[in-house]
Simulated assay, not measured.
Amino acid sequence: MKIRAYAKVNLALDVVRKREDGYHDLEMIMAPITLHDLIYINVIDEGIEIESNSKIVPTDQRNIMYKVAKLMQERYGLKKGVKIFVYKHIPTQAGLAGGSADGAAVIKAMNKLFHLNLSYEEMAALGKEIGADIPFCIYEKTAFVEGVGEKLHFIEEPFEAYLLLVKPKKGVSTKKAFTTLDLSKVIHQDCRAMKKGIEEKDYQTVIDNLQNTLELPSIKMVPQIKEIKKEMKELGFDGALMSGSGSCVFGITRDQEILNKGYEFFRKRYFFVRKSKILNKEENL
């Protein structure tokens, strides 16, 4: 069985507060994008086997796909195993939820392969036990997201935009980005303004409300993030923002010429450069 695992970008990310359990309360606008990993998964007699085209992806119990497969085997008493091959297109430590997307895809694939008949809500709840971004990746729909990432309020209006993704070679550890964030210096914007902009098809309001609290600590670790943003704006992109905890930056435009010009400008200068766009799927949920 073949399944696509779609990446995401954060059009807005506000770290609201640190919680007593050590996690952070967030408010975000998350959107799926067309960049994806390809996952091939088949039923085998026993165990969990993972292979990849990437040499840096762990293929043992550290891998999110392994964790969700193991959880599903135990939870539903599955007697057979799975063999997974993941063809990675989504870079690691980029803020694009590559690992979570792969985990969500495996949940959906195993749901079909083993005829579990789980609903999207049940698959999302299962995924939440492994990673905070997995519920979003189960649905693959633009959403206003709260909590640690588990409270999803879907935005039904499609949002059309091209994205240029540029990632420096050095990634950012999500844990380190959060631990070095000084919340006393953060300027909080209301993500609901962007939600309203998308719902009212007001592109400029979306652009005006691009924001990411985690940019400051991540830029300290990878200064190229700031340089890429500046260059994108000089090239004519309507906005530029780091996604998640970084280090990938996306430029946003509705002009395909600007997208292509940006691609030619960046492609020989940085580790990862891809053209993409917001994914608007007519999904029967």
Score class of each variant (00 low, 15 high):
1 M>K: 00
6 Y>K: 01
7 A>L: 06
7 A>T: 06
13 L>C: 10
15 V>G: 09
17 R>V: 08
19 R>A: 14
29 I>K: 00
32 P>D: 04
33 I>E: 07
41 I>L: 11
43 V>M: 13
50 I>S: 07
51 E>D: 13
53 N>C: 11
55 K>E: 15
56 I>P: 05
57 V>G: 09
58 P>H: 00
60 D>F: 13
64 I>Q: 09
65 M>S: 14
69 A>H: 01
70 K>V: 05
74 E>K: 00
77 G>I: 02
78 L>M: 05
79 K>R: 02
84 I>T: 02
85 F>H: 12
85 F>K: 02
87 Y>A: 15
88 K>E: 14
89 H>K: 11
91 P>H: 02
97 A>D: 11
99 G>R: 01
103 G>V: 11
104 A>Q: 06
105 A>F: 09
107 I>E: 09
116 L>K: 06
117 N>A: 11
118 L>D: 13
119 S>L: 03
121 E>V: 12
122 E>F: 04
122 E>S: 10
124 A>E: 07
127 G>Q: 02
132 A>K: 02
132 A>S: 15
133 D>T: 05
137 C>Q: 04
143 A>I: 03
144 F>P: 07
146 E>Y: 03
146 E>L: 09
151 K>N: 11
156 E>D: 15
158 P>H: 05
160 E>V: 08
164 L>I: 08
165 L>H: 03
172 V>H: 06
175 K>F: 15
179 T>Y: 06
180 T>C: 08
186 V>Q: 10
187 I>K: 02
193 A>C: 10
200 E>C: 08
205 T>D: 13
208 D>E: 14
208 D>T: 04
210 L>F: 07
212 N>G: 07
218 S>V: 01
219 I>Y: 03
219 I>M: 10
219 I>D: 06
222 V>A: 05
222 V>I: 08
225 I>K: 00
228 I>M: 11
230 K>T: 07
231 E>Q: 15
236 G>V: 06
237 F>C: 05
246 G>D: 04
248 C>V: 01
252 I>K: 00
253 T>R: 00
259 L>S: 08
260 N>T: 04
266 F>H: 05
267 R>M: 12
269 R>E: 11
276 S>C: 09
277 K>E: 15
278 I>P: 08
283 E>N: 09
285 L>W: 12
285 L>E: 14
